[in-house]
């Protein structure tokens, strides 16, 4: 089923939703939001694109295998836990930069962890969506 309305709308919506997901990711640092919802919004954006153009096109648009996205997300989250071990602190201890960055304030390993969650959730949700779309 091809819907011209959805196909046209998604051209504008996709970049908007991706931007919004980044906003959610960064906002989650101190306020409601975070990697999990951000990742879901990414998945929603690509799911809409897939609905409009089919699973094949959706995979092409994503460029990266969703399973790889899951692995990279996990790796980043793991690294955020491993960094404090190098400083002799327990696993997963939060380390913070002393200089505040613009927009997000003091960045630290929790942000890195959240980025991992963001990629992991997006990859996992898209993996499920693509698999289901390809089966039907």
């Amino acid at each position: 089923m091809h819907s011209i309305i959805l196909a046209t709308a998604i051209r504008l919506l996709l970049p908007l939703m991706l931007l919004f997901s980044l906003f959610l990711l960064l906002r989650g640092h101190n306020e409601p939001g975070g990697g999990f919802v951000g990742g879901l919004v990414v998945a929603a954006a690509f799911a809409l694109y897939t609905l409009a153009h089919g699973a094949h096109e959706g995979r092409r648009m994503l460029r990266i295998d969703p399973l790889r996205l899951v692995a990279i997300g996990l790796l980043i989250a793991l690294c955020s836990g491993l960094l404090p071990l190098l400083a002799g602190l327990p696993f997963l201890t939060g380390l913070w930069s002393s200089l505040p960055a613009p927009v997000i304030g003091h960045a630290g390993t929790p942000l890195l962890f959240d980025l991992g969650v963001y990629l992991l959730v997006a990859g996992m949700a898209l993996l499920i969506i693509f698999t289901l779309m390809e089966e039907s």
Partner: peptide, 24 residues
């Protein structure tokens, strides 16, 4: 020394992640 306690968790987790990266 206390951090040794984390390694029985980190090792299998890291191995699972690496295994995912080396999927095929």
């Amino acid at each position: 020394m206390k951090n040794l306690l984390f390694f029985p968790l980190i090792i299998p987790l890291a191995a699972a992640v690496l295994g995912l990266l080396a999927w095929n």
